[in-house]
Amino acid sequence: MPEQYGYLRTVFRYWLCSHRLLTFIISFAIAATFLTAFPVSVFPQNKPMNAASIEELKINIRDAAQKIQTISCDFIQEKEMSMIKEKIISTGKFFFKKEKLLRWEYMQPFTWLIIIRNDQISIIDDNKVNQFSVQSNKIFQEINRVILGSIRGTLVMDEKNFQATFSYNTSSWVVKLKPLAPKLKESLSEIVIYVDRKDYSVNRLEMIEPGGDCTKINFIDKKLNQPIADEKFMVP
């Protein structure tokens, strides 16, 4: 490469560095002003709860879970891979009917359907149906426990398997669960459940892996206690 190009490249890199530095300083100044002006309303801070409030919250979650007969909603799932700064976003529909009926349907960017009917799991993938019992598959045992347990409110009360800490912000009660069982600890370092402050249903679930990767599932457009036909939980 001719020498003048090497020189130009050095100048360009220097310009790029100084330009980035300037951009960073301006962004930082704007962010600092913004945070000072709107400390809580824009970025909700989780506040700790005292023992009495925690007990009251547990009772409310349990009572609400008992009243919830069905849930139907859309979901947006984000798998964040911290080291490679990449997100995989999938969306679909979610149906739950008491006691143990679950239909979890991924629609974008792939189609995949899981139906849990009591302790029987059916997976429909590329028109192939795979059926097995929850007990026969360790991965789905954990999924079943975490997802259904979150919705039914049992995970929050499970002091034998999880160490729970409670806090709240303007929109949610936030329950952080650290697994105690060695097997679950290997795949999940923390589960965070965001419970709606109005109806105590689950708004969001975060599953954080030991390496820092995280899966966030946002449940949106929730409909509680609307009739859902049993056929919804049948293998098509």
């Binding site: 799932q77 991924y106 795949s187 990767d213």
Partner: peptide, 15 residues
Amino acid sequence: YRIVFANEIGMTFFD
């Protein structure tokens, strides 16, 4: 290269 294989629900099989 980074190669990440995770199940549909997001749990990582290998990275």
